[in-house]
Design a protein around this nucleic acid. Structure first.
Length: 864
RNA sequence: GCCCGCCUGGCGGAAUGGUAGACGCAGCGGACUUAAAAUCCGCAGCCCUUUGGGCAUGGGGGUUCAACUCCCCCGGCGGGCACCA
């Protein structure tokens, strides 16, 4: 296996594929579906990619991080499951079909082939036998199976929900396809439309999804907080406000509030534009209908609704107040009330809710203060609502109570009078999974005129997507297909129609981690495999998935447990969220975006176009995106520098959870380091590996540096501080370089060789090809590093010989002293006081306090 | 609008409440070279007149013998907001 490169230049272009073949032939990364009991298991998973056609730097970063973990854990003696697959359904394939006339399936398959080849060139330690794509019928058929089981278990429901509707294209729009309230292709104003859809009842698990966050100790705190807020448990009350005049069969409006203590501060009631009462009013009043229609053009996203100017329509209807029977209040339709949260209606308390305040100010509604801030008298309504602590006032029987006391008292009164109840409310909504699109997993349901909605027979799965579809018409191609949807009802045999909606692609990605354990199983998962491998020990991906994907996966694990597929209910025991890869952006003289390879930077710091010489403006550093053209093609980087260099630069640049900036200089630096290390190793080739009887001080110094580096790098890798691990490795390389300047002393050759071998082992997770190359060179015949164990630090060599103690006077550093580790406090303190500079400052001063932190610091506090 | 983060030299960053700036990039000086590249050696937070001193972790305040680190207020930047993945 060793036709090694010349010692002066490391030829990564031949070495990298050679080692990739060696690993593959040895099957280094293959693990069985049911792991061997002899070794502990470790499941490393990176979020699988969407096959857009090319890998981007975000992928390179993601898979490098995962590969470091996988290779490190393997060296630590774990059996490591490290698979790869494709999140292959989704909108871009349909866009490609509409724009370029290619079939979504063909487009996706060729993208997968191209991306697989690129990923393989990165030298990832993946068990490629487990690869699958979510568009494989073998996968999505099992997903249909799961859906039917969930349906039987009461975890699925069909109901109506609002979608963004493009009236010109006749299609449902994703939120991202709604731009300034208009469809992205047609430009037509978007409407909200009510569609009958399938929902996963994720809210069933809301209490558990919230409570179990506490157990996810290896998740970033911020992701846990984001999920907790998203699930959004709140305690409050449902309050019934009777209509003064019944309308459309309704006698009262129910409101949800977290502030029943402020009920006396009410000045209006507001309902969502989608509220049934709004519909009833609109039916009778054209002005109301116009307002509701206008709200429908706002789109369905919360951001759009809440950032829009607060607007309302006075219905002219009024409600009575449970605590103020002699008064009545107007009912408004308001664009900022969300139908999906609570009951779709609120009572407006402008004194103590900012949105209500803005609304009341705009429409000249009363603003009543009912909470007095503790420190001062009741404030005059100013330019904002007061939502801080205080005592209740202007509130009849609640006066003088604290906010919490008043909440309880108000709820008791509501319950006694039958006007309301205390409730726990969840912000989390059920997960609508129906999508009116072709390139997704067909929902296995049949609509029969006789039997209604009938689940497909499990024996008929997978329900495959038809290949012969056309995208030349608006709408869903499955719906226009001439024959696909025509089937016999599985229950009565009468002619019936298939559901033509497909699943949200988040469904596909909510259980793939389980499928990887037994990718060929004839059922969704092989029980023995998932019980052994799950949960995923380390999951790695972008923070942008902190809520939806991770929450849906947590729901799926629970649902699969309930339907008997799993033991685990948390899919990901450890989570790491990486930052984005960014790059400078460039614009030409005419303002158009330029690719980095079109730009030349001169020694004087000016930038210009490589070909035309025109001046180039360097823009800000931001996330790589096609539109800004500030992308770097990983394939070109691997061709030019090799996979190890790319991996090393990515790891060395900054902490992996922060955004990193891709720079040419950084890659070049990493590349120089690769060459330097390879050169440095050459001097320790064919060196005796028997420890000599004697080590000169310089040799011992190097050995101590080596073993301290093992300890430091190990600690850094364990805590995802990969940039620190890199720095420690640089330091050891520096120590070897320093040692090379010392004349050959006893034990130095051994110590140097040891340092090089340890370096090879320590870089093996990050730069696996270079590590193998060096290891094979200095330890011929010793096998593959990919299968070698992690080095152990010799604790005797790690222990410090002496420590530097900082000496402060009044907390300011005034000198340092050397001491034996663990030296007695009184001796350290007197030595510190004797330090010349310190002694001068202490002269004639009364010492009030002597603070001694062992092996760290001495601080003298003196009288002024 | 709501929610969640982040902010340290020219740049990326390091630092269990205990010597702020490890390590790297860029820079400067030197060696080697006819020259350049590569390589090797060295310097380097800012200010002041020094061998000394002062100021420095976005700004302001607090806790502490000691604060990048803990608490409060403010500012700037970024991410998410349910049909993009």
């Amino acid at each position: 296996m060793n036709d090694l490169a010349s010692p002066t230049t490391y030829d990564f272009a031949t070495a990298e594929p050679r080692w990739q073949r060696a690993w593959q032939e040895a099957g280094c990364f293959e693990v069985p579906d049911v792991p061997d009991n002899a070794k502990p298991k470790y499941y490393v998973l990176e979020m699988f990619p969407y096959p857009s056609g090319k890998i981007h730097m975000g992928h390179v970063r993601n898979y490098t991080l995962g590969d470091v973990v996988a290779r490190y854990k393997r060296a630590r003696g774990y059996q490591v499951l490290h698979p790869m697959g494709w999140d292959a359904f989704g909108l871009p394939a349909e866009n490609a079909a509409r724009e370029r006339g290619v079939h979504p399936g063909a487009w996706t398959r060729s993208n997968i082939a191209a991306m697989r080849a690129e990923l393989q060139r990165m030298g990832l330690s993946i068990d490629w036998r487990r690869e699958f794509a979510t568009c494989d019928p073998e996968y999505y058929g099992q997903q249909q199976h799961l859906f039917l089981d969930f349906l039987e278990a009461g975890l699925v429901e069909r109901r109506e929900s609002w979608v963004n509707w493009d009236p010109v294209d006749g299609t449902v729009l994703a939120n991202e396809q709604v731009i300034d309230g208009r469809g992205w292709r047609s430009g037509a104003p978007v409407e909200k439309k009510l569609l009958s859809q399938w929902f996963f009842k994720i809210t069933q698990f809301a209490p558990d999804l919230l409570a179990a966050l506490d157990g996810l100790t290896r998740w970033p705190d911020r992701v846990r907080t984001m999920q907790a807020k998203w699930i959004g448990r709140s305690e409050g009350a449902r309050v019934r406000f009777p209509l003064t005049v019944p309308n459309a069969g309704m006698t009262d409006i129910e409101v949800y509030t977290t502030r029943p203590d402020t009920l006396f501060g009410m000045s209006f009631l507001a309902i969502a534009p989608e509220h049934p009462l709004a519909a009833a009013v609109a039916a009778a009043d054209p002005a109301a209908a116009a307002f509701v229609a206008e709200c429908r053009r706002l789109g369905t996203s919360e951001a759009a609704i809440e950032t829009a100017e607060k607007r309302g329509f006075d219905t002219g209807l009024r409600v009575r107040h449970p605590f103020l029977p002699e008064q009545s209040f107007p009912i408004w339709v308001a664009n900022f009330v969300l139908m999906e949260y609570g009951t779709g209606a609120i009572f407006g308390c402008p004194g103590h809710d900012q949105r209500d305040f803005e609304f009341a100010t705009k429409y000249h509604l009363p603003i009543i203060t009912v909470v007095a801030p503790l420190e001062s008298a009741p404030r005059e309504p100013g330019d904002s609502a007061y939502d801080g602590p205080g005592r209740i006032c202007n509130s009849g029987f609640l006066d003088g109570l604290s906010i919490d006391e008043a909440k309880s008292a108000a709820i008791r009164a509501l319950e006694a009078s039958g006007f309301g109840t205390g409730v726990v409310n969840w912000r989390l909504r059920d997960w609508g999974v129906s999508r009116q699109r072709y390139w997704g997993c067909p929902i296995p349901i049949i609509h029969c005129g006789v039997c209604g909605t009938v689940p497909a027979a499990k024996a008929s799965l997978p329900i495959r997507l038809p290949d012969d579809v056309s995208f030349d018409r608006p709408g869903n191609p499955l719906d226009h297909h001439p024959t696909w949807k025509n089937v016999a009802c599985p229950r009565c045999g009468a002619p019936a129609l298939r559901e033509t909606d497909t699943f949200d692609t988040f469904v596909d990605s909510s259980w793939y981690y389980a499928r990887f354990c037994s990718p060929a199983a004839a059922e969704p998962v092989a029980r023995e495999a998932v019980d052994a491998w799950l949960p995923v020990d380390q999951y790695i991906g972008g923070i942008e998935h902190a809520i939806l994907h991770l929450l849906y996966s947590r729901f799926f694990a629970r649902a699969m447990r309930k339907t008997g597929y799993l033991n685990a209910d948390e899919p990901f025991a450890g989570l790491f969220t990486q930052g984005m890869v960014t790059h400078e952006s460039y614009r030409g003289a005419d303002g158009r975006w330029l690719y980095p390879e079109e730009v030349r930077r001169d020694a004087d710091g000016t930038t210009q176009h490589r070909d035309t010489g025109e001046a180039v403006t360097v823009g800000r550093v931001e996330a790589m995106s096609k539109s800004k053209r500030n992308t770097i093609d990983p394939g070109a980087i691997i061709n030019g520098y090799g996979a190890d260099t790319a991996r090393w630069f990515i790891l060395s640049d900054n902490p992996p959870d922060r955004d990193m900036e891709w720079t040419e200089a950084g890659v070049a630096g990493a590349s120089r380091f690769v060459q330097r290390l390879r050169r440095l190793a050459e001097a320790s080739v064919a060196c005796d590996t028997t420890p000599p009887g004697e080590f000169a001080p310089a040799a011992m110094e190097l050995r101590r540096a080596t073993h301290r580096t093992i300890a430091h790098v190990t600690e850094a890798l364990e805590s995802f501080a990969f940039n620190v691990a890199v720095a420690r490795i640089y330091s050891l390389v520096g120590a070897v370089t320093d040692a090379d300047r010392v004349p050959d002393v006893p034990g130095m050759a051994y110590a140097r060789r040891e340092a090089i071998e340890i370096l090879a082992r320590l870089i093996a997770p990050s730069m696996p090809h270079l590590a193998e190359e060096i290891f094979a060179r200095i330890s011929p015949g010793a096998g593959l590093l990919a299968e070698a164990s992690w080095p152990e630090a010799d604790s005797a060599l790690v222990a410090a010989q002496s420590v530097t103690i900082a000496v402060q006077v009044m907390g300011k550093l005034r000198g340092t002293i050397e001491a034996v580790p663990g030296e007695r406090a009184d001796r350290v303190v007197s030595a510190a006081a004797a330090e010349p500079h310190v002694a001068r400052l202490l002269e004639g001063k009364r010492i009030l306090k002597r603070i001694h932190v062992p092996d760290k610091i001495v601080n003298f506090v003196v009288a002024p």
